[in-house]
Design a protein around this nucleic acid. Structure first.
Lengths: 232, 232
DNA sequence: ACAAAAAGATGATTTAAATCAATTATCAGC
DNA sequence: GCTGATAATTGATTTAAATCATCTTTTTGT
């Protein structure tokens, strides 16, 4: 049986970063932990708001966050951040001290807030830590390029196929999962209208690519979805 | 007279990074310079090809590079890199050792090639240098978010207005400039067809927003273009 | 359990922009 | 200065997908 875990879609949505904090010395780790705050957010709540001052970097302990750019009523989902991700790294430059995007909880989510100045200090002090932050930023950038390409150059079928593969392969990590996202959210993610999502999903079902039973989503033919991704 | 330099469009195309190498010690700078190669590219030549191994980070000394993502005949311009930019930073993670995009010379361009392992070493050694690289990566990410939003959520008029403001404000840094880009390239940049670009430019001219005389491009009403950007 | 609200679904219509087709202008090389 | 090639322009046509309108189903709160 084909398993979407093995499939390399241009997957557009998310990748958990490695654990950046492994590179810290015991004292440095203590510094971080002593200044740490843990916060729980309910589904839908805003974790960080675009335009507000970034006093802390956000580490997702558990849950799922939606990271999106807002401008004039319109929103663009930049990525979905699962557990292990850091949010707010683009505010590390001292002259860039506000959040460049909004983050909200897709599901109940627990985060750790780490003082941004401590982050800056650790970057200066610890080369391996700095290097791991660079790695994380690079990986997010690469993933975003893929998503950017997908949303601008593919058409409806390709976009939605990509998102489905990504949900299966990178978020839920299984071919069969309970989709906690509404059609509207799926539309937002794939950059299309809700109605188009519904129609396209129906077509995928009719073609035997996926199966939807209530809230349960199942990828039947990952290869087929891949092909659709690639064709357009 | 309004000057586009003052205008803050969502400007999508490029920003020269600060000089990262200012943070190096004299010895470190010597290390870089002793291992440096200077290369000149003619207009149109490929500086780095997506998928090839990144042995060097590219520093643009002079000229203009087009950085674009390629997939199945289609291309997506990620940014235009003017002098002062670094290309290839996303290959710094050791497990990400190929170029994630192609870079070609928009005009005759001179670059310095810096061994990527020396870059990695300097990041580990010098916190301020590492920090400046993080700043650069963050700024590119922020700029790319703006471009991403522009290409996905705006329609033709808005996209093209944005590009024009960006060319005037960030690339040529004057309201009147000789456009070295063809209509086709302008289309590629704004993510639309060549014909649509031509029609839209004509409309902008008719509305007194810009003036085109031969190869000379002039922004007449930057405010007006801004408004078009914002409206959609 | 019921009403109200939200989400899902479906068909008809509109629209923005790409594509296609054909023509004119510009440029490089001989 | 002519000639083929490339770029620019213009109008007509097509198309993908959004929007609109309506209806059904599911969920939620009291």
């Amino acid at each position: 049986m084909s398993n979407t875990n093995q499939i390399k879609a241009s997957c557009t949505v998310a990748k958990s970063s490695g654990n950046n904090f492994d590179n810290l010395t015991p004292e440095q780790r203590k510094l971080v932990e002593d200044n740490l705050v843990v916060v729980k957010y309910k589904k839908g709540e805003i974790i960080a708001k675009q335009g507000t001052f970034t006093t802390h970097i956000i580490y997702i302990c558990e849950g799922l966050a939606k990271v999106y750019y807002e401008d004039m009523d319109k929103t663009l989902i930049l990525r979905i951040a699962p557990a292990g991700c850091l949010i707010g790294l683009t505010s590390l430059p001292i002259n860039q001290n506000v959040f460049q995007y909004t983050a909200s909880a897709y599901v109940d989510t627990q985060v750790k807030l780490i003082d941004i100045n401590i982050m800056r200090q650790l970057i200066l002090e610890n080369g391996h830590f700095a290097s791991s932050i660079i790695d994380t930023l690079s990986e997010v950038a690469i993933q975003k390029n893929g998503r950017f390409f997908c949303l601008t150059h593919r058409q409806a079928y390709g976009k939605l196929a990509d998102i489905i593969l990504c949900l299966a392969g990178n978020i839920f990590k299984t071919d069969k999962f309970d989709l906690s996202l509404s059609r509207k959210e799926l539309a937002e993610l794939s950059g299309m209208s809700t109605e188009s999502v519904i129609r396209t999903l129906k077509n995928f079902q009719d073609d035997g690519l996926i199966r939807i039973t209530g809230k349960t989503f199942e990828v039947i033919d990952a290869e087929g979805l891949m092909k659709i991704c690639q064709l357009g």
